[in-house]
Design a protein around this nucleic acid. Structure first.
Lengths: 179, 179
DNA sequence: ACCGCCTATGCATCTAGTTGCACAGCAAGG
DNA sequence: CCTTGCTGTGCAACTAGATGCATAGGCGGT
């Protein structure tokens, strides 16, 4: 269960409310670990009872109060303990693969149309990641260790999208739909 | 929810018991859609009440009876209907990415050791997939459409493992641990 | 004046999937 | 003889996550 730890990393970088975290998950961490705001609030509650984080209420003008969370020493210890354990390799899960496997029983045209859409989505995401890399990490060779982590995560995104595009192209080419 | 459909494809290819399916999932489909035998039995039960499959008991010598499932017309219709819908792009989920993102708060040495292990696992899996491709699909250019599907799924596996290896290498190189 | 969107927090319900356990007979190896 | 492993089917309990709903004030546009 890594959502706790993803939140812990995010809160360790900078204190945040549940709402802030939900937005960060939409914008950055969420590219490789999705979470809805409902889930974030639920997990934050559990993390607070476990003493990994603590919160204080902050009143604001013209907007609702917010509960700002910060990491505790116990939270830091937990992060360190967790990072020293090996992480399981996430199994692949591809509905498209299942469809391809059974393409003889299905609707070939619809599947290939879907592959076209998927290719475009991968291409758009790749463009986004590459723009992000060019903007934030123009000179990767000179990064500090902690920035390096974030950069390598972005690299994973770039590699994954390229992999997705390559696969789509192979599929379309194999079925002669690459026009 | 694609497990139903993964099972449906497998049963459409060849009738099977729950046990057979569990083994197929271990050996082939399971490389891109994991399922435990408990889950398979549960889903088979639901599929039977939905009339997507039907079963009959087969007595055997020196081993327990088994319940052999076959696909119904309704099951075939459902497969076709399902394949004509677009499939959602599966979000990435990488615990290692979370660790890298927070490597400044964690145990760098342990994380890199884990990356070494992971690289080896990807390499072994790649070797397995490539051997499988060489054995079953020596001449990909001349495949029929239905074999093409299975071949392209294997290609996805190969591409994914290569992608995994590339990422591991980038990480190790970036942290100077590539020796 | 009303509509929709943003900030902000959360509960309730449902589903998919994991983990642990149970039963039962046969075969093979030490 | 005993243990381990294979064939075969399943239930029960739990957890993570998705989905839908609720509340509430302010802000900007038509």
């Amino acid at each position: 269960m890594a959502l706790e730890h993803a939140i812990l990393v995010s809160v360790a970088e900078k204190t945040a409310s549940g709402y802030d975290l939900a937005r960060r998950f939409d914008a950055s961490i969420g590219h490789f670990w999705k979470a809805s705001h409902q889930q974030i609030y639920k997990v934050l509650g559990r993390m607070e009872s476990d003493k990994w984080v603590e919160s204080h209420l902050v009143a604001q003008d013209n907007r609702p109060d917010k509960k700002v969370y910060s990491i505790t020493q116990e939270g830091r210890d937990e992060l360190h303990r967790w990072s020293s354990q090996p992480s399981p390799i996430e199994p692949l899960r591809s509905e498209l693969a299942v469809k391809l496997r059974g393409i003889g029983f299905g609707d070939q045209e619809a599947i290939l149309a879907d592959v076209h859409v998927r290719r475009a989505a991968h291409a758009a995401q790749l463009e986004f990641y590459e723009a992000s890399a060019a903007k934030h990490y123009p000179d990767p060779a000179s990064l500090e260790d902690d920035e390096l982590g974030a950069y390598l995560v972005l690299r994973a995104g770039i590699l994954a999208e390229r992999h997705g595009i390559t696969w789509c192209d192979e599929i379309l080419q194999a079925f002669g739909s690459d026009r």
